[in-house]
Amino acid sequence: MPDSFLTSSERETLTILADAVIPESVKFGVPGAGDPLIVEEIESDAAKQMPDISKSLNELEILAEQFGGDVFSNLDSTKRCIVVEEFRSAHPAAAAKIGNLVVQCYYRDDRVMRSLGMELRAPHPKGYEVPDGDWSLLEPVRRRESFYRRTD
């Protein structure tokens, strides 16, 4: 990731926006998506998958000015919510893409995976156990007459 991919103010905007997608949860003991480690991942993935994210963050700032009269980070939580909703309705594709990036990084974070009961590892090489299942369920289908359509 180039050091300068996002400016510090863009990063701040992204952090608040990420928290707006997934806030912290005390109940489940997980951080919000605006957690610094997660935002670092979002920024890194954005560099590859949404290189024009700055443009979208700028659109959000325009709406912050329009609906809150200040930069996004200076707004109180009520005004931020309004701006986020405006952003989602005015720029649905960009908002959806940012939402996707946020969850893509959030749901691979150690703390989040642990709270979901997942092992902290890649699928390969260990793989997973899947129960074979109850094959007796196939009995009624086995008893069925062959029913493919004859052509002759």
């Binding site: 993935d45 590859k48 996707n100 990084c105 749901y107 902290l120 890649a122 699928p123 390969h124």
Partner: peptide, 13 residues
């Protein structure tokens, strides 16, 4: 992708 933790991200890349 399945050899690393970011495997799902790569399915979008």
């Amino acid at each position: 992708p399945s050899t690393a933790r970011d495997w799902e991200a790569r399915t979008q890349g």
